[in-house]
């Protein structure tokens, strides 16, 4: 009997819940919160996700990815204005879509979403 998992992949926060006895039960994040900030960072070669990534954003703007959802499914050419406003670097992916440069490695928006959901 498969479990039903619901994912709210938000631009600012993410939340996941499973169905238990006909009701949705929110899965707390590893930090104990019911929602996880949609932020991923690399600091001193360590990957930070959620609240800890958000707390260090001021000190590490170039390697802190946020609002990644807004770039899902968008081409680099059509997102240039948004890309310019971001403190982190973006690049054109193989099929022309937006990718983020995180600690020198290009990451797709869906990869960032997966990192957030795993935390």
């Amino acid at each position: 009997m498969a479990k039903i998992l619901g994912i709210d992949l938000g631009t600012t926060n993410c939340c996941m819940a499973i169905m238990e006895g006909g009701e949705a039960t929110v899965i707390p994040s590893s930090e104990g919160g019911r929602t996880t900030p949609s932020v991923v960072a690399i600091k001193d070669s360590e990957r930070l996700v959620g609240i800890s990534a958000k707390r260090q954003a001021v000190t590490n703007g170039e390697n802190t990815i946020f609002s990644s959802k807004r770039f899902i499914g968008h081409l680099f050419e059509e997102s240039k204005k948004d890309v310019e406003r971001m403190p982190f670097k973006c690049a054109k992916g193989k099929s022309g879509e937006v990718e983020f440069v995180l600690d020198g490695t290009q990451r797709r928006p869906a990869e960032i979403a997966a990192m957030i959901c795993r935390s």
Partner: peptide
Amino acid sequence: KFDPNKHEAIAQ
């Protein structure tokens, strides 16, 4: 040393 698990950076 700044530790994002305990501290929140407001400014640099």
